[in-house]
């Protein structure tokens, strides 16, 4: 494994990203929408609503069960505050869609983009290995998403804390869950997303097609990250370990598929 060559390809991809309006709008626009505008639009009206409107029956045994495990003083909170907390977590799943969606965009651009513009052959003629190409493509697709997710999550956390502090008297985020999901699960989902995009790259001819198919491919991943977060509420340590193990296995298997596609023979006959 020659890291210099990997970094050369990654750096080239990143330079191209900064010149692509699709990538720029995805990396800046989607986070703005998902992490700032959507939460503001849903949570702010609730925060501003009259707390009295929320009193009455409880949120229900299931939700109470779920949250009382993570929020220590859950039972003593008002219904209004409980609703706000619930929304804050629900919208956090939206933020976590970023590490799935953004890499799909960046991977389409760099992998299908090379195919569409026929630039791959010059790379394949060089001594870079297939594994190095896949590694580089994963890293370059990952970097914009990692930063965008990190900044959006930070923005989201600050936003939520500003809105919820008056009710809670303490900061809801960052908690263990948000840190683990932003720093560990997020990047792992990104890798899977890129690997899937590499696999569909042999089937599509243009970056546009790739975006379309990609948007279907990321759906199950979004469901998976939602499920992962949901189960996390129930049994912190065990689900965390099982979740991580499952993800690692998926990443590894998909990596094998992806390097197989970048086998020069296939890449040249299917991708050029």
């Amino acid at each position: 494994m020659n890291w210099r060559r990997i970094w050369a390809l990654t750096k080239k991809d990143l330079m191209e990203f900064t010149k692509s309006k699709y990538v720029l709008s995805a990396v800046i626009g989607i986070p703005l929408l998902f992490a700032i505008l959507m939460p503001l639009g849903t949570i702010l009206p609730i925060a501003k609503a009259n707390p009295a409107d929320f009193e009455g029956e409880g949120l229900g045994g299931f939700i109470d069960n779920l949250f009382s495990k993570t929020i220590d003083d859950w039972a003593s909170l008002s219904m209004h505050t409980q609703t706000l907390i619930m929304l804050a977590y629900a919208m956090f799943i939206v933020v976590l869609m970023l590490p799935i969606i953004i890499p799909a965009v960046t991977a389409s651009e760099t992998i299908v983009g090379e195919k569409e513009r026929k630039t791959m052959e010059a790379i394949l003629a060089s001594p870079i290995t297939e594994t190095e190409i896949v590694f580089a493509k994963i890293i370059s697709s990952l970097i914009p998403s990692f930063f965008a997710t990190f900044i959006s999550a930070a923005g989201y956390i600050i936003l939520i804390d500003i809105m919820l502090f008056p009710f809670l008297g303490y900061l809801l985020f960052p908690d263990f869950l948000s840190i683990i999901f932003v720093l560990v699960f997020g990047p792992m989902f990104s890798i899977i997303s890129v690997e899937l995009m590499i696999m569909i790259s042999t089937k599509v001819k243009s970056v546009r097609d790739s975006y379309q198919i990609g948007s279907l491919v990321v759906l199950p991943l979004i469901m998976l990250i939602g499920a992962e977060m949901f189960s996390f509420f129930f049994n912190t340590v065990l689900t965390l370990i099982i979740g991580l193990a499952v993800m690692l296995v998926i990443i590894f298997i998909l990596f094998k598929f992806a390097t197989n596609i970048f086998n020069r023979e296939k890449a040249i006959t299917k991708m050029i």
Partner: peptide, 10 residues
Amino acid sequence: TETPALYERL
């Protein structure tokens, strides 16, 4: 290569 295919944005 048969198609010159440079990275046009670079």
